[in-house]
């Protein structure tokens, strides 16, 4: 065995995880090679030194700092623009702005079409109805049925009720919030058949926004789709 080949296996040899044949070959090489022998000894010493590094205690305020950041993110997500806007506009202009924004939103809703070969949008009672394939055999429809503000503890949320219907023989989907979104609400498992309701709470916002939910096909967990719903501003 050459030195450069032997060197590739020194770590396994020094840790005792090299298999028997490799160990025997390395033993033979090391018996005749003082420089490789020294290298292996050094690695064993390094191994011990790494094992004995001292533990550094976590600072006592670490968990409090994490909660501070989480709560700050929740607050920021809840009311991103209200205060600066309110500070700029008088009460009369605020009312006009709100009504104008609501009117624009209705116009946008009425005219929107969703690009893509499988998604299309229809105007429902309140929000868009989305059609989403969940596999080659099944699909689902989802529609926002209501949005209302709720106060939990000292926080303001928008509670969004979504009607979901799964179609296709024997299909079940799991719905859960997409990563990074501040959403409370349990994962919901829905089988095909009658419509079900999914309720999630998102940070309250002054404007219409998009809610993303992950839809997992329970027949094939690798198949996951993102359902995006436009949520109108809560009253």
């Amino acid at each position: 065995m050459r030195c450069d080949t032997a060197r590739e296996h020194f770590s396994d040899y020094a840790s005792g995880t090299a298999h028997e044949a490799l160990r025997a070959a390395l033993d033979l090489h090391l018996a005749d090679c003082p420089s490789c022998r020294r290298e292996v000894e050094d690695l064993k010493v390094l191994w011990r030194a790494l094992d004995h590094l001292e533990v550094v205690e976590a600072p006592p305020g670490l968990r409090a700092e994490v909660w501070r950041r989480i709560d700050h993110d929740l607050q920021t997500h809840a009311m991103p623009t209200r205060r600066p806007l309110a500070a700029l506009l008088s009460a009369r202009w605020r009312r006009i702005t709100v009504w104008a924004a609501a009117a624009c939103f209705v116009v946008v809703l009425a005219g929107v079409t969703v690009p893509g070969h499988y998604q299309r949008a229809l105007l429902g009672d309140l929000g868009l109805r989305r059609f989403l394939p969940i596999s080659s055999l099944g699909s689902m429809q989802a529609q926002v049925s209501s949005v209302r503000p709720v106060v939990v503890g000292d926080r303001l949320f928008d509670e969004v009720h979504i009607a979901v219907q799964v179609e296709g023989p024997g299909h079940r989907v799991r719905i859960l919030p997409e990563e990074g979104q501040v959403v409370t609400g349990e994962e919901v498992l829905i089988g095909s058949g009658a419509p079900s309701e999914v309720v999630v709470r998102v940070g309250h916002t002054f404007r219409p926004h998009t809610l993303s939910l992950r839809v997992q096909d329970q027949a094939d967990l690798r198949h996951e789709t993102v359902l995006r719903l436009t949520i109108p501003a809560s009253p």
């Binding site: 919030p177 990563e179 990074g180």
Partner: peptide, 8 residues
């Protein structure tokens, strides 16, 4: 914080 937001 990242664990909290991605735990789902």
């Amino acid at each position: 914080v990242r664990v909290y937001t991605r735990i789902q």
